[in-house]
Design a protein around this nucleic acid. Structure first.
Lengths: 228, 228
DNA sequence: GACATTAGTCGCATTATGTGACTAATATGC
DNA sequence: GCATATTAGTCACATAATGCGACTAATGTC
């Protein structure tokens, strides 16, 4: 993470909100910033960011921010937007925000300066940081039925119950098992592996992988009912 | 529109793609840039933009770009994202892109430097410009059933046939009249006025206005079928 | 007044969805 | 072993949503 001297005003930074499932909730990766010295010492938490070095593209910058914070990993990343409200810890006028989806179980940290926080147990954040985190989660939820975000938060193979729980986590409501599976097979989104997982008690579950097969796109009418 | 000297490298600009319906298609507002002099004179078309003057917010900047190009008007505007690929006519590293939806019949120009082009009759555009235009249209289409974008492209009052044609334009496919209206009334999205419009031949149509009434949100299952 | 044209509605067949109850396969306690 | 708890996975049926052709209504044109 770049530690620019405070006086230098950067034109823009690339900030990355990394999200991962944890304890049936979402967790976000934050960076520790030590403020002041001696008796005035305090700790502040911020969203990891980078600042342009040369003519790097935005994607490169977001990748660098990721590597610096969670370590080397390949995770799905997408741009959320640009934010200018409030001050930025790096002094940048503009934050270009990316959200990264880290699969369950891969939520590492690159150094002890980074820590994962459940969304329900967040430390206080500055204005822009708070806004960006909120928009990131909203962006993920809004794209739920347009991009396979739930699959990006799961390991390569998973049980159908795990998949359903991920959707329930993201939607914030319970789903009916039979309906969920019927819709899933109708869409030909997953394919079974020949592996099974026995998770303590209960019947073992078959493992599936994400594998959308070609299917005729639904030529359906317009949905007005979720229009805001 | 700011005409910075070419040597000065701006950190970022705010670019605005203004869209309006026209001839059963979408049209975009472009700005004429005269290149070279004398025998080498040529014309290039670019997406209108502004550059930060002081501590203006992004929204202010997009409004200024709009006023400069289509003139004073209040239109629905939303951010699309940040783009860094390819050069920018104003020399900015970064373009923060907004898309503005101009209602049918309000597609004015602030000066003769601006002109509306049908998407099917576009002049050649530079790389970043072309990419931004494509993303703008995609953003509008993707948000079709999340935001009332079709209504933002219509006058305050409209006939149900006009509304249907707008949806057909944005979706790129035909819809069935009865199904469209049934879904519309089920969602309680429009309310009738007491006005009627007689458009030459055929039965006069009743005018409606956008007026979403409170309705219980559909607690429906997940849709996997439009997942990309 | 016949006809073309656009608005608006109805009814019904088909498809999609909500939901409870069922079977299957494992672990645990006795 | 056997009853019971627990999780996976499926079925069947009632209800709701959707596709779609055919209908009526109101206007202009010839």
């Amino acid at each position: 993470m770049s530690r620019e001297p405070r006086g230098k005003r950067q034109p823009y930074s690339v900030d990355v909100v990394a999200l991962t499932p944890r304890d049936n909730e979402l967790a976000v990766l934050l960076e520790r910033r030590n403020e002041g010295t001696g008796r005035d010492k305090s700790v502040r938490w911020v969203i990891p960011w980078t600042v342009s070095k040369s003519g790097e593209g935005l994607t490169d910058l977001s990748q660098r921010a990721l590597t610096n914070s969670i370590g080397p990993a390949t995770v799905w990343t997408t741009q959320v937007g640009a934010f200018s409200d409030g001050p930025h810890p790096g002094g940048s006028e503009l934050s270009i925000l990316y959200v990264a989806l880290v699969p369950m179980g891969q939520a590492t940290v690159a150094s002890e300066n980074f820590e994962w926080f459940l969304l329900s147990e967040l430390p206080p954040l500055a204005e822009r940081q708070s806004q960006m985190l909120q928009e990131s989660v909203a962006a993920v939820r809004d794209r739920l039925d347009l991009y396979p975000v739930a699959f990006k938060l799961l390991p390569a193979t998973f049980t159908l119950s795990e998949l359903q729980h991920m959707y329930e986590l993201l939607l914030g409501r319970r789903l009916h098992k039979a309906s969920f599976r019927r819709a899933l097979t109708a869409a030909a989104l997953v394919e079974p592996t020949d592996e099974w997982r026995s998770e303590g008690r209960g019947r073992p579950a078959q493992l599936y992988r994400f594998g959308p097969r070609k299917r005729r796109r639904g030529r359906r009418g317009v949905r007005f009912d979720l229009l805001g």
